[in-house]
Design a protein around this nucleic acid. Structure first.
Length: 511
DNA sequence: AGTGCAGTTGACTTT
DNA sequence: TAAAGTCAACTGCAC
């Protein structure tokens, strides 16, 4: 009989509750990764995810090898893989982390649970990060998070009694039906890489995080870049959080206030990470249904939907800053948070396109795709939650604010690089003779902008606010309040006013 | 010195 | 991690 550790998006041996539990059983341990071809057919998945995963798995195998075990890869449906292993070796217990993922993985986990119950195999699931499953008490959430994250981390087992099984080869991207997905500046996967990033961020790179995180230029180096490693679990949230707190204390002691504050911003974003994933955990349908039903059908899918989404995701909107963001994302697999919000909002408001296909296209581009952050954010930036303020970004203002010298634009839209700073943010307003002199032919060397952004924003604002004042909105808002029982609604009127007067923050997402 | 005034800043409101 | 508009307080300057 063997204990199986089913690795999913927790690809590490450190601070790993499932591995620890299996190891301490004393029985032979099978470290299993199930490569599920059907998962890779989901519209969110892409070649860069596959490449990053392969690196993570190789790193995990190295870590297991150092402890006398190996990673065993099996290809197929989780239930049938587990069924075969159980038939051949007998599974004494199946250990895994809880996964908050796509509806597809949600359904697969339920199928595995059903199978385990029928087969008489104990299926033991452990909390991942700070996300709570089936929690009733909304008020205690932050406290529980804090307690979980401050608990001691679990050391990696020093030696594993391994069940020696043959590992299968990881299918390559083409074999899984994934399109060619060149990403020349993609981050490397694996815990070693994640640890290096976290260390360099907390020791040097992060000093100007607070100021630089929103700029497309400096953000790439000033941000931690551990998101992909958290998404696949190369790093645990607990060890990341504790490392950040230690660094913050060190910088305070060194009287480097700027660095300490930057680390503080990072820490608050770690809370935010779990806070958002919790939304998808509680309401998996956020992946495909407008949270607020009054918005269903607000953006009907027209005949030009596909062409507009393609122009947007490929960086051909005619807005230099938006296009630079999209092209940079394609090449690096990463974009800072503010620019992610901007491009999603641009698609939803200026282009007035339904959020689902764009969200899938973005998911494929993000090496750090995390369903629990991605979908709640996509809905928020599209203004369909009914509880968040309508935020329409001005792509030209963002360009002037975040890239005043046009350096980022020139890097990613070199066809515009000869334009002077005054016009690089909005080439359509440049005099024709200037464009000609600088070799820019709108509609030829660079696209004509898809929309007049000011007019489009005006129309979008009216439509978005139109929903909020309609009778359907109020009815559905009441339903959401009832279902999710937001605490704010229970406050006495005076305090409710006082609270709502507070500056609303992006992290608030009370249903 | 005090006044008028254009321009700036920041808090706050509206969309 | 919205943007634009409003308004009052403030600032720098000319006279």
């Amino acid at each position: 009989m063997i204990h199986v550790v089913w690795f999913k998006r927790d690809l590490r041996v450190h601070d790993h509750a499932a591995l620890e539990a299996a190891a301490s059983s004393g029985a032979p341990v099978l470290a299993l990764y199930i490569l599920e071809p059907e998962l890779w057919r989901q519209p969110e998945m892409s070649g860069r995810h596959h490449a990053f995963l392969a690196e993570c798995l190789a790193d995990l195998d190295t870590a297991l090898k150092a402890r006398g075990a190996r990673l065993v890869v099996r290809v197929g449906e989780a239930v049938s893989v587990l069924h075969d292993l159980n038939a051949a070796h007998g599974i004494a217990a199946l250990h895994a982390h809880e996964e908050t993922g796509l509806l597809w993985t949600y359904a697969r986990d339920r199928a595995v649970r059903r199978w385990a119950r029928k087969a008489g195999v104990p299926f033991l699931e452990y909390r991942q990060h700070g996300v709570l499953r089936a929690h009733g008490d909304r008020d205690g959430w932050a406290k529980t998070w804090e307690r979980t994250m401050r608990a001691p981390t679990q050391a990696a087992p020093s030696h594993l009694r391994a069940a020696s099984l043959v590992s299968h080869d990881l299918p390559d991207a083409g074999g899984l039906g994934l399109e060619d997905d060149p990403c020349p500046d993609r981050q490397r996967g694996g815990r070693a890489e994640g640890v290096t990033l976290l260390r360099s961020f907390l020791a040097t790179r992060g000093r100007h995080y607070r100021k630089a995180m929103s700029t497309p230029l400096d953000g790439a180096a000033a941000c931690s870049r551990v998101s992909a490693h958290l998404a696949l679990g190369c790093l645990s949230m607990r060890e990341t959080y504790q490392a950040a707190l230690r660094a913050q204390a060190r910088w305070r002691q060194a009287e480097d206030a700027a660095f300490a504050q930057s680390v503080g911003s990072f820490v608050s974003r770690l809370h935010w990470h779990c806070h958002f994933i919790q939304k998808l955990e509680d309401e998996p349908e956020i992946e495909r249904r407008d949270l607020h039903q009054a918005y269903a059908g607000l953006r009907p899918i027209g005949p030009d939907h596909e062409a507009l989404v393609a122009a947007w995701i490929e960086g051909r909107t005619g807005f230099p800053f938006v296009d630079a963001c999209m092209r940079s994302l394609r090449s690096t697999g990463w974009l800072n948070f503010r620019m992610r919000s901007m491009v999603m909002a641009f698609s939803s408001y200026h282009l007035w396109q339904d959020w689902r296909r764009p969200a899938q296209a973005l998911a494929r581009q993000f090496t750090d795709f995390e369903p629990g952050i991605h979908y709640p954010q996509a809905q928020m930036q599209s203004g369909v939650t009914g509880v968040n303020v309508v935020r329409i970004y001005n792509p030209v203002k963002q360009s002037r604010d975040q890239d005043p010298g046009g350096v980022f634009i020139r890097r990613w839209a070199p066809e515009l690089s000869a334009l002077p700073d005054d016009f690089i943010h909005e080439p359509w307003s440049a005099p024709a003779d200037l464009l000609a002199a600088r070799g820019v032919r709108l509609g030829d060397s660079y696209p004509v902008r898809l929309v007049d952004h000011e007019a489009a924003a005006r129309v979008a604002r009216e439509k978005a606010y139109g929903v909020r004042t309609g009778p359907a909105f109020r009815a559905a808002a009441r339903a959401i309040q009832q279902k999710h029982g937001s605490r704010k609604s229970g406050l006495p009127p005076t305090e409710r006013r006082a609270r709502s007067a507070r500056k609303p923050s992006q992290s608030e997402f009370d249903f």
